[in-house]
Structure formats: structure tokens, C-alpha cells
Nucleic acid binder design. Structure first.
Length: 325
DNA sequence: CCCCAGGCAGCGC
DNA sequence: GCGCTGCATGGG
């Protein structure tokens, strides 16, 4: 007997779930190969969600009927960024000036900007310093497995996606830990989730305590309640959050879409494609801010973050020939 | 062995 | 303010 809710959403434009979930903005989605399609699942807000896209329909299965007090379809529509107006991501001027980049990024227009839970985004990106995406994913998975709660979902599907008894499976995932749980974690247990990086474990526990005791109010930093600059400056005061990680949290977790995270890859394509070069070899805070602003001047502020993701993906996948994460 | 991976903080200058 | 180094580990 199945215990789940099903929702279907119309898709007005093509949606590429694989690029969306594995390009480095999210770390907790898993792929599940079906015979004619690939499904993706993750634990979100105490709910196990499994979904897949067909040509013009998104099908969602979930272990609970509502997420964050909203109907499943409405929540997923928001979470997947389906509200973004893709035709506005690259401005007319940008299209005119850089047609080859628009063409190069076109295969990734199905990649959307996720609206992820703030605390999960905060902690996840604090794990994303100077290591590969595979290792980041492993750390985040370890945090959930160690400090989260297990959820299970049992489903029967036919290869075409219709509910039948022919094809069934069960999946288990763990919720992302609460601030209270990480605030009370022992350092030795936390270190096992951070590649035994003791300083990182301490910083994670410290900021989890700040969220738990209310001194860091993430909801109050979320757009449009706070400006991007205020959210950014607030995050930067905490140990373990620098320029790049603050931008990632603002963009993926707090809804500040003018945030433009600059990592080593973004820095490379800014230099290669736009001639934007930092004066120093190491990216100092001042140089970082100037680069990010120059990028916003070129890309506009409304969708700087999503435009950056498309270009980031084009650079890594097509120019640097990086196949997998 | 080397270098790099969606960096950051602490230090000397 | 800027440059260098340690941090941890896995993969090319």
C-alpha cells in the first residue's frame, strides 16, 4: 500500500533536472534510473520528494501532501524556480554583444535557480571550501545521515510513469538537521562529517547555535525582507563565511538573485570572455567585490545569479570539458 | 610525486 | 591593505 501524494505541473519551457540538481547549487538530490526516464529524489522539509520531467509535464511524488504549509504543486513550482522569466535572463544588449555566449549557454537554459531552505544552504556551502563537489556532497550527506531523521517512500511505477504494480521500489533519505540538533552536536561527531576538518566543524556548530538561539535570523535576511547587501554583510560577520560563500547563501537560500558568486571557474571565464581580471593573484575581498559588480554591470542585477549559473555550466562543461561532478 | 578542487582565516609586512 | 600559508582529502 502506497502512502504518498502525487502532483503534476505543466511545464511551459523545457526543464533539465539533471543539470539543475548536479551543477553545484544543490548537494542532496539523487538520481534514480527508470527504464525510460530518470527520476530524482531528496528529503525536503520533513518530506521525501521524488520527481521526473516529461516533455511538458513535471510529475511529483511526496510522502506528505504539503511542504512548508503549501500544496505540493505550489511548493515545487517555487522551489524549482519555474517562476523565473527565462527570456529576461540575458538582456537584449547582452544578446547583441555576446551572441556566441548566449548560443553556448543555450543547452543549459533548462537549468533553473533553486529556492532552497536557508539553513540547509547556509551549512551546505560552509562545507564547500577548496574541495571538489563530490566531497561536498559527501559531507552534506554525512551531516544528514548523522543528525537528520530518516524518511522512506515506497512507490510502484510503470516504465512510462503510470502507477501500476509492475515496477516498485523504496527509497530512504534523511532530512537536513535542524539548527538545534547541530548546535548540540559533539565536535568529534561533527568532525566525522567534515573530512575531519576541525575548524570547519567548530564554525558550523557556532553558527548553528546562533540560528538556534535567535541571534541569527535567516528569515529576516530573506528577500524581500532584507536587502542583498544587508544579508551579505550579516553573514560575513560569522567565522567560516567569506565573500564567495556569502554570495552562494544569498543566491540559493535567501532569494537574492543579484548575488554573483565567484569561484575559480567563474573567475576564469570572467577573464576569458569579458576581460575582467583581478589585479592580484589571490582574490582579495576588495577585488572580489569589484569583479562581482563588474559582472552585474554586464549581466544586469535581476538575474545575475542565474545567468552566472548558465555561463558557469557552459564554461565547465564545454570549454573545460569537465564531464561529471 | 605533482596540482587542483565552487575558500577561508590568521599571520607578517 | 596585500601575499603567503595551513587546513583535509580525493582525483587526475
Amino acid at each position: 500500500m502506497n502512502h504518498f501524494t502525487v502532483a503534476t505541473l505543466p511545464l511551459s519551457t523545457a526543464l533539465n533536472l539533471h543539470e539543475t540538481f548536479f551543477c553545484g547549487q544543490a548537494f542532496r538530490w539523487h538520481a534514480l534510473a527508470l527504464s525510460t526516464n530518470t527520476a530524482y529524489y531528496a528529503a525536503l522539509d520533513g518530506t521525501l520528494v521524488l520527481l521526473y520531467a516529461q516533455s511538458s509535464t513535471l510529475t511529483v511524488y511526496a510522502s506528505a501532501p504539503v511542504l512548508q504549509h503549501r500544496p505540493l504543486a505550489e511548493f515545487m513550482h517555487h522551489y524549482l524556480g519555474l517562476t523565473d522569466r527565462l527570456e529576461e535572463v540575458f538582456s537584449p544588449l547582452f544578446r547583441q554583444k555576446y551572441p556566441h555566449l548566449v548560443q553556448g549557454a543555450a543547452p543549459y537554459f533548462g537549468l533553473r535557480l533553486l529556492r532552497q531552505p536557508a539553513f540547509e544552504t547556509l551549512i551546505s556551502f560552509m562545507c564547500a571550501q577548496g574541495i571538489g563537489i563530490a566531497l561536498i556532497r559527501r559531507q552534506v550527506a554525512a551531516l544528514a545521515r548523522t543528525f537528520g531523521s530518516p524518511l522512506s517512500l515506497s512507490i510502484s511505477l510503470s516504465p512510462s510513469g503510470q502507477l501500476t504494480p509492475h515496477f516498485s521500489f523504496a527509497i530512504t533519505e534523511y532530512t537536513f538537521p535542524t539548527p538545534e540538533c547541530l548546535a548540540e552536536a559533539s565536535l568529534s561527531q561533527l568532525q566525522r562529517c567534515t573530512n575531519f576538518h576541525r575548524a570547519r566543524a567548530e564554525r558550523i556548530r557556532r553558527i548553528a547555535r546562533a540560528v538556534a538561539d535567535g541571534s541569527l535570523n535567516l528569515a529576516a535576511l530573506t528577500a524581500p525582507h532584507a536587502t542583498f547587501e544587508h544579508a551579505r554583510e550579516t553573514l560575513l560577520q560569522y567565522d567560516g563565511i567569506g565573500e564567495k560563500i556569502a554570495d552562494c547563501i544569498c543566491l540559493f537560500g535567501l532569494g537574492h538573485h543579484e548575488a554573483f558568486p565567484i569561484d575559480t571557474h567563474v573567475r576564469q571565464y570572467l577573464a576569458e570572455w569579458f576581460g575582467l581580471k583581478a589585479p592580484t593573484t589571490s582574490l582579495t575581498p576588495r577585488a572580489y567585490r569589484e569583479l562581482a559588480q563588474a559582472a552585474r554591470d554586464i549581466l544586469g542585477t535581476k538575474y545575475a545569479g542565474l545567468a552566472g549559473q548558465w555561463l558557469f555550466h557552459h564554461w565547465r562543461r564545454d570549454i573545460r570539458k569537465m564531464r561529471d561532478y
